[in-house]
Design a binder for these strands. Sequence first.
DNA 1: GAGCACTGC
Length: 707
Amino acid sequence: MPSMAQGGVSNSTEVHKLNSKPFSNDSSARRQKIMQQRKSLPIASVEKRLVEEVRKNDILIIVELPQFLFHAGYARDGKVIGVTQPRRVAAVTVAKRVAEECGVELGQRVGYSIRFDDRTSATTRIKYMTDGLLLREALLDPYLSRYSVIIVDEAHERTVHTDVLLGLLKKVQNERSKSVNDQSNCNNKANKNMLLDRENDTHGIGIFKQYQGRNFPPLKLIIMSASLDARGFSEYFGGAKAVHIQGRQFPVDILYTLYPEPDYLDAALITIFQVHLEEGPGDILVFLTGQEEIESAERLVHERLQQIPEASRKLITVPIFSSLPSEQQMRVFAPAEAGFRKVILATNIAETSVTIPGIKYVIDPGFVKARSYDPVKGMESLVVVPVSKAQALQRSGRAGREGPGKCFRLYPESEFDKLEDSTKPEIKRCNLANVILQLKALGVDDIIGFDFMEKPSRASIIKSLEQLFLLGALTDDCKLSDPVGHQMARLPLDPIYSKALIVASQFNCLEEMLITVAMLSVESIFYAPREKLEEARKAMKCFASPDGDHLTLINVFRASDEFLEKRKLEISKEKSEKIMRKWCKENFINSRSLRHARDIHSQIRGYVEPMGLSISSCGEDLLQFRRCLAASFFLNAALKQPEGTYRALASGQVVQVHPSSVLFRAKPECIVFNELVQTNHKYIRNITRIDYLWLTELAPQYYTMQN
DNA sequence: GAGCACTGC
């Protein structure tokens, strides 16, 4: 019986946005200090034991990070030790820290690789990366032959990428140990249980067959998890051994309410003031569900502050949520003025992504806004749901990072007992089109039979297969189509956007579509703070196109291009970044989103060129571009209803135009849209007006069938 | 009249 992993988020994977110091000359002193620190970490005492365990077992499930596999020889013969993280910042900060610990320059022996930023070289032996990136790598190297060990960190988070990666790694490990066993008669003890697994494995990976006969050393897998339950991972990997290492954490007092709170926002406010007036120094972190809630909580705190004695008013509020511009996000890291207490009002960005120093008190109403997916309607939505026990634990842990803390859970203990143990893995609550496309590209044809750690519902798989079929990515017998399906799988985009690029090359407007899909692939481009709503609206009007949001986005992109182009010759790269940010601010554009879109644009451009798609522009012929949008997004067409709402043609749902759309007031008869999200209403976003007749002309396979 | 969090050779 394996010992179960508990508690302790790995110390080495903390993300602290201000923590990323570059490699510097005073590194030797720092290194010594780090070495000393390391020796005091629990991990050091088990170093030997851990290496021994890795030697004896093919799969280990542990909860702390080992750096010493390198010294144990796992990176010999040019092999690489790969470490995956769900988030970019984590991959970068951990790589930097490890490079420093080892006293090497980043990018040499220790490096990282994330999208748009590769700091590895031929000499890199320990490579940190995002799990999504390793999945992409697998498309080119299905055996992951460069790697001797792969460490999947933060596996308990169960992102879609982690789950797909785990499934793939299990396959690769099987196939690699098979390739060794087939070649030599070595009766390797460590491979025995894998042989048993192989006999139960009826769904072979097609692509591996062509590699059969090649000799790969076995792949070692290490799964790192901070979850309460290592058993799931252990069972999935055929009874893999679990080693439990206690993380470092100060005690946190958990306090519950006596009775359920009918209004958690009000309860949160009361608790904020209770802590402020009665507890010792230390900042407060409050978990709320979204921007709107955070903004109203902020107003309410300020209102109530006026009702208490002036001497007690030394309280400041700081909001943080993902769509907040980064300069404003940074405010959470600045200490409050002496004598003041800081209240951070956060979404679950503060649960894992951002670690805020100085938190002593956590207030947790116990709710989170989570994505959910309805396979019947094919619609994703955001709904407020109770957190899981694991999430509640993660939140309370935020109070015990620098010293003992307190966590106020705004519900009775009996309610805690009723919570789910862990959050439902994302793969069970999202559209699977992309997952399926990638697996198919890796040669997994039987998606329903694929050995997922937790299988998505059959209905959900079938719905996404259907979508891919309608996009022309799959053939009648559900194989990846050639060339369309293969081209789509290679592009790191939503399948519908990948298809749009292929369609656009035939409409001679790939230039425009490249910009469009890049802009559609990022978070909202426009940023409108409540207090400057009018100004923001005015700024947006400069870019607005009467045809819709797609052309509006193109206008923004081209304006930014033009702005940069003019100044490119005279200034450095850093300076251009800086003036770009200024330009964005003046135009109420989220500079993070725009930079991201520009990165995606240049990356995707580099992909489609070698695919043989012709990059040309339709110039002034915007009608041509709108026809192309209709041909690409025909699955997302909608018709106006008499009362001003719309009916989505594919699903029959009644939807409304999102208020952020330039067509919010114009309400044309027929439109295509790119996003359908259920919040308070069913909203469609990113909309362009089209002619209804184009649908039957350009997508007859779908619309003659329908009508 | 309104936007959980992540991520992609």
